Computed example of a mutant assay.
Amino acid sequence: MNKLFKKLLITATAILSVICYSTTAAFAAGFDVNNDDSVSVNDVTYLQNALSNFAEDTKLDLNNDGRIDVNDVSFLQIEISNQSVENNTQISISTKEYCKNVGDTFTISVDTNNDVNEITFTSSDSSVAKIISTEKSLAKVKVNKVGNATVTIKQCNKIITTKVKVEKAKCIDVSEWNGDINFSKVKNAGITCVILRAGYGKDPNQEDNKFNEYYRQAKAAGLNVGAYWYSYATSVDAAKAEVRNCMKTIRGKEFDLPVFLDVEEYRQAVLPRRTLTDIISTFCDGVKGYGFDVGMYSAKSMLVDSAYPDELASKYLIWMAAPNNSYNELPPFVDIHQYSWKGKVDGISEKVDMNYIYNLNY
Score class of each variant (00 low, 15 high):
residue 247 M to Y: 12
residue 246 C to V: 04
residue 322 A to K: 08
residue 255 F to W: 08
residue 249 T to Q: 07
residue 249 T to A: 09
residue 356 Y to A: 06
residue 328 N to Y: 00
residue 285 D to W: 07
residue 283 F to H: 05
residue 272 P to H: 12
residue 305 D to W: 08
residue 260 F to Y: 15
residue 347 G to Q: 11
residue 298 S to L: 03
residue 315 K to W: 03
residue 346 D to S: 15
residue 325 N to V: 00
residue 239 A to E: 10
residue 326 S to C: 08
residue 248 K to F: 00
residue 285 D to R: 15
residue 273 R to E: 05
residue 287 V to A: 02
residue 277 T to A: 02
residue 255 F to D: 01
residue 307 A to R: 09
residue 282 T to Y: 08
residue 289 G to H: 05
residue 297 Y to H: 01
residue 350 E to H: 14
residue 312 L to R: 05
residue 335 D to N: 15
residue 295 G to N: 01
residue 302 M to I: 14
residue 342 K to P: 09
residue 284 C to T: 09
residue 308 Y to I: 13
residue 261 L to M: 12
residue 321 A to Q: 08
residue 327 Y to R: 13
residue 256 D to R: 07
residue 265 E to S: 12
residue 303 L to T: 11
residue 267 R to Q: 14
residue 241 A to I: 04
residue 313 A to W: 05
residue 277 T to S: 06
residue 255 F to V: 00
residue 252 G to H: 06
residue 304 V to E: 14
residue 239 A to Q: 04
residue 291 G to T: 05
residue 356 Y to F: 14
residue 255 F to E: 02
residue 243 V to E: 01
residue 334 V to C: 09
residue 290 Y to G: 05
residue 291 G to P: 10
residue 343 G to F: 10
residue 343 G to D: 10
residue 311 E to A: 13
residue 269 A to W: 07
residue 353 D to C: 12
residue 342 K to G: 14
residue 300 K to F: 05
residue 295 G to Y: 00
residue 311 E to H: 09
residue 254 E to P: 07
residue 357 I to N: 01
residue 351 K to I: 09
residue 319 W to I: 03
residue 296 M to C: 11
residue 307 A to H: 01
residue 282 T to K: 09
residue 352 V to S: 01
residue 240 K to R: 15
residue 287 V to D: 03
residue 308 Y to R: 13
residue 297 Y to T: 11
residue 346 D to C: 13
residue 310 D to Q: 12
residue 306 S to A: 14
residue 253 K to Q: 03
residue 267 R to N: 15
residue 357 I to Y: 05
residue 356 Y to H: 14
residue 268 Q to R: 11
residue 281 S to T: 14
residue 299 A to W: 11
residue 271 L to N: 06
residue 276 L to Q: 07
residue 350 E to V: 13
residue 339 Y to S: 08
residue 293 D to Y: 04
residue 281 S to K: 15
residue 265 E to A: 13
residue 244 R to A: 14
residue 323 P to F: 11
residue 340 S to P: 13
residue 273 R to S: 05
residue 288 K to W: 06
residue 302 M to A: 06
residue 271 L to E: 04
residue 328 N to W: 01
residue 348 I to T: 11
residue 270 V to N: 07
residue 354 M to N: 12
residue 308 Y to L: 10
residue 331 P to Q: 05
residue 253 K to F: 03
residue 335 D to W: 02
residue 320 M to F: 00
residue 276 L to I: 13
residue 283 F to E: 03
residue 339 Y to W: 12
residue 258 P to I: 05
residue 256 D to F: 09
residue 247 M to W: 07
residue 349 S to M: 12
